[in-house]
Simulated scan of single mutants.
Amino acid sequence: MPPLISNQVVAWGANLATTVLLGSLLQTSVQAIELADGTTYFANVPRLENARTTYNSARVFGATYYFTLHVPEDAGEPLQRVMFNQQEGVDSISFNLKRTQAYRNKQKKQLLPIAAASTDEKGAISIFFDPPISPGETVTIGLRPYRNPRSSGVYLFGVTAFPQGEQAYGQFLGYGRLHFYDHFRWPSYWGH
């Protein structure tokens, strides 16, 4: 008579089979979502991780505004374009797009090529990557204003990411928030 197999061994064998099946499913590549008309979407949307400025004083020259985005492993498509649109702030900020830079990680160690940087009729800035940013990578984009705004306050920049593709659908990631302060004070003997 054959030896009996305990319930514990059968359960372990079933769990092992389930683990192997799930593991093989997770190793399959994630595909981007593409509609019948050819519009592509991210399967999982990139994240806006951070927005900061090198100088937060109003009216200062030489600042850089850094926006850090992470493209998740399961994005399905690489990141082709990022659009910035100033949504809030007293002054409209103008940028020197020729001085725009992008880095592969947060520490600004590896410079990435930018295919194009442009502004549309509404003032939205688009940064195009060639090659695009692969899933699993983090990119930091440095925008160079001609000057910080004249007026202090909170300035919000809407950030939208576009996957690779001819008809890529932009997905809004959130707002990059920059706060500028009026640090200049007149000497106390002026204005009496």
Rank of each mutant, 00 (worst) to 15 (best):
F162H: 01
P78E: 00
V10N: 07
A11N: 07
E34Q: 11
G153S: 02
T160S: 09
D130H: 11
P72F: 08
H192Q: 14
G23M: 02
Y41I: 05
G170V: 01
G176P: 06
T18R: 14
H179S: 12
F95E: 02
Q8M: 05
E73H: 11
A117K: 00
G23T: 08
S126A: 15
K106W: 04
E166R: 12
V60G: 03
P2I: 00
T18K: 12
I141Y: 01
I141R: 00
Y155S: 07
A168K: 01
A32N: 05
Q101P: 04
I141E: 02
Y66S: 15
A58Y: 07
H70W: 03
V82H: 01
M1A: 13
L69G: 06
P132Y: 08
R52L: 12
L22I: 15
N50T: 10
A36M: 10
E49T: 10
F95W: 03
P46D: 03
A116P: 01
Q107P: 00
D130T: 06
Y181Q: 12
Q87I: 07
F184D: 11
P78G: 12
S118Q: 12
M1T: 11
A117F: 04
A168D: 03
K122C: 11
N85D: 14
D182W: 04
P78A: 10
R47Y: 13
Y146W: 06
L112T: 07
A75Y: 00
V9L: 09
S24G: 05
L35A: 15
S57E: 15
I141K: 01
T140P: 00
G76L: 04
T54F: 03
P131S: 01
F84T: 08
L173Y: 00
G142E: 06
S57R: 11
Q110Y: 09
G191D: 09
Q31M: 09
A63S: 15
L16F: 03
A115R: 14
V60W: 13
V159N: 10
G13V: 09
R59F: 10
T54M: 02
W190I: 10
Q164E: 11
A14I: 13
S188W: 00
T18F: 07
S118F: 06
A32R: 08
P46Q: 01
P2E: 04
W190E: 13
Q87Y: 01
A124R: 09
G176E: 07
